[in-house]
């Protein structure tokens, strides 16, 4: 009889231990579910500097502004000083921030037109890859799936841009870029030939095809790089100004996901939500939603 009670006590104790262990493990397993090898986890961010910066190399896959709150905060663009022509062109633009999706004439918001350079980098570059080829550096952008070539073979920028001459460079959304290493850690890019249909900034600030944008990419350490951008466009601005400074951090597993502006989805959004909501350009500005973390 004693043996029976002793066995019962042992069995109950064992059950308590097992159930306690199960309870202790349940929250842990719920908090950290197994990760899939083929899913992109944007909140997985790199820690530390990863060691010294490699020389003359930006190659790799990078998380940019807005991807997470782990990206250091840079500097915003300066307020430009517009020429009379710049004021006139800007006056024709109806930015989404004031007019909303229903009233804006922002070509990206209404039609999925490419943001182009430099807006694709200033406004929407949560992730990208950089590839180095023998005669160029190529930026592969997550948003829109665009790529951009920067020639590094010593060629000059085109002397004729957007004109009627047969040898004049046709303007493009990403422009024509040449770059050189100023030293082992600073890569300087000059760009011109930007399609005038793109906006320089999201607020409708314009640019001309003759605009010259200069970027200074600095490889700070293995896991960090930053870019400072300036623009000179005498047709639209009375003086050059800064387009801001933006930081990038190494993506741990070097994988990012696809993020496209799909015309049919944009049309659906506008028809079912944006347009019915209406446009109130003179109403008090307010921001209610749309994310927030790491913006």
């Amino acid at each position: 009889m004693r043996h029976i009670w002793a066995r019962a006590v042992v069995a109950v104790a064992a059950a308590v231990v097992v159930s306690s262990a199960a309870v202790a493990q349940t929250p842990q397993s719920q908090a950290k579910p197994a990760k899939s090898p083929w899913v992109y986890y944007p909140l997985d961010t790199i820690t530390g500097d990863g060691g010294p910066a490699p020389k003359r190399d930006l190659s790799g896959t990078w998380a940019g502004p807005g991807s997470t709150d782990a990206i250091p905060r840079g500097a915003a663009a300066e307020k430009p000083s517009l020429t009379p022509l710049g004021q006139q062109v800007m006056g024709q633009h109806k930015p989404i921030g004031r007019y909303g999706p229903a009233g804006t004439n922002d070509p990206t918001a209404r039609y999925c037109d490419p943001l182009g350079f430099p807006l694709n980098f200033i406004y929407q570059n949560r992730a990208m890859s950089v590839a180095t080829m023998p005669n160029r550096v190529v930026f592969l952008l997550q948003f829109g799936g665009f790529w951009r070539e920067v020639w590094t073979d010593g060629r000059p920028l085109p002397a004729k841009v957007g004109g009627d001459d047969r040898d004049s460079l046709d303007p493009t959304y990403m422009g024509y870029s040449v770059g050189h290493w100023e030293d082992d850690y600073n890569f300087v890019i000059d760009t011109t030939g930007l399609d005038e249909r793109t906006w320089l900034l999201r607020d409708g600030t314009p640019h001309s095809v003759m605009a010259r944008v200069q970027e200074r990419w600095t490889r700070v350490d293995h896991n960090t790089m930053k870019v400072a951008m300036t623009i000179d466009d005498p047709k639209m601005f009375t003086r050059p100004f800064s387009l801001g400074t933006y930081y990038y951090r190494w993506v741990p597993n070097q994988k990012i996901n696809e993020w496209l502006c799909v015309p049919s989805e944009t049309l659906k959004y506008l028809q079912e939500q944006g347009d019915p909501a209406g446009s109130y350009p003179d109403a008090e500005p307010q921001r209610l939603g749309g994310g927030g973390r790491g913006r």
Binding site: P72, A76, G244, R293, G294
Partner: peptide
Amino acid sequence: RDDSTPSRYGTTEAP
């Protein structure tokens, strides 16, 4: 929306 982290874009428009 989450306002627990600051915008990295200063006064310019965020994505």
